[in-house]
Computed example of a mutant assay.
Amino acid sequence: MSKKVLLTDHPWPDVDIERGILEAAGYELVAGPIETPDAATVEAMVAEHDPIAIMTCWAQVSATAIARPATLKIVARLGVGLDNIVIPAATARGAWVTNVPDYCVQEVSDHAVALLLDLWRGITLFDRDVKAGNWNPAAARLHRVADMTVAVIGFGRIGAATARKLARGFGCRVLVTSPSLVAKHAVGHELEPGIFVTDIATLQREADGIVLTAPLTADNRHMVNDEFIASLQRTPIIVNISRGPLIDNDALVRGLEAGRVRAAGLDVIEGEPSPPASVTQRPDVVATPHIAFSSAAALAELRRRSTEDVVRALRGEQPLHPCNQPGESS
């Protein structure tokens, strides 16, 4: 049986953490590139090395890649979202799929708040202006953050942390929604001081800012589309720190141009790592390259915990963060 563990990609400069944990357990790490390879390259790496485990950060792990190893015990995502792994294929062949669901809650929620503050207080906008040689405080059209109503779509760990920081730290009125919240509570129910359950129609009427933290699914792909934007009443800022395809890029541009959306703060954009210039080059868009999760502490925790779960699976133990039940029929 193979003793190789394939790491498809790693957007950090070394693999010392992963290699140290795996070698101590008796396994060999085969590391792919820092840059994200395409699905065909991952499939070729799997065919070459016949790994017993696959670890992936951004790379797509296809059904073909999952089917190729003689024995495959686990496909581990170094991150939270699972849209780059064909989970049914892993489940069908008896392999675990894992993630690390809570390693970057503080970083991502901080980033969401930072993008809102940047856009409401004009930080990037006026920094660009000053660097261009202008000094024009009379041009400021800024906002008192405590007067803002912010909607958070998705109320998992990151959504909840974002809502609490805005309500407790800045005094915002925060509206939160998710399918499970709406099923359990009436619209208007106060979950915590300053945080209220809402639905999409209400937040479209009342929100000055909208933060997307929901996981990407087939049902919510392009949830921010022309129809969604047409119903916005308060010209809100839209912030996305979840997955790019939650927003239809062309619809967002149309909304910005029509004045239905005030500005956008985007850590994720459909089409990354080469997102469309029609979005990124706009002065009313502040974009960061999918780094909301990142801090030295978060990355070290992510790498250690993900690799430790791989070792558990290879020893025949249940991982701490399983995302499937191997062998179950779909």
Rank of each mutant, 00 (worst) to 15 (best):
I241G: 09
R303M: 10
G171F: 13
T91H: 05
I17F: 10
L191T: 01
L314P: 08
L115I: 03
A70E: 14
A263E: 06
L302H: 04
P275C: 12
V5Q: 00
D14H: 14
R141C: 06
E28N: 06
M55V: 15
E270I: 04
T64E: 12
A40Y: 05
Q233E: 15
F155N: 12
S278P: 01
M223S: 07
A39N: 04
N136A: 12
R243G: 11
L302W: 00
G271P: 07
P33L: 05
T177L: 15
I123G: 02
V176F: 10
D147R: 06
V239G: 03
A92T: 08
P137C: 01
P245M: 10
L22T: 02
A138P: 00
S294C: 08
E48H: 12
A297Y: 02
E317P: 09
L82C: 08
I247G: 00
H290D: 12
F126R: 02
A277H: 13
A65Q: 11
I247H: 05
A89T: 11
G154S: 03
E272G: 10
T288P: 04
I74C: 06
F196Y: 15
N134A: 13
I66E: 04
N324T: 07
S329G: 14
V285H: 01
E190F: 02
M148K: 15
E206R: 01
L203P: 04
A167N: 03
T91W: 14
E107V: 04
A31D: 06
N249L: 09
D219Q: 14
E43W: 09
T280I: 15
I54C: 04
I85H: 06
V80I: 13
D208K: 02
F126P: 03
P319K: 04
I195D: 00
T56D: 08
R141A: 02
Q318W: 01
E257Y: 02
A251C: 09
T280V: 14
A160G: 12
E227A: 15
Q204P: 12
A132Q: 10
D14A: 09
D250L: 13
T217A: 02
A297R: 07
G79D: 05
V108G: 04
V286P: 03
E308A: 07
H49K: 07
I291C: 12
R243W: 09
G159Q: 04
G265Y: 03
E192C: 12
V86F: 13
E43F: 11
A67W: 11
T288W: 06
P69M: 10
H10Q: 14
Q281D: 14
M1I: 14
L212D: 04
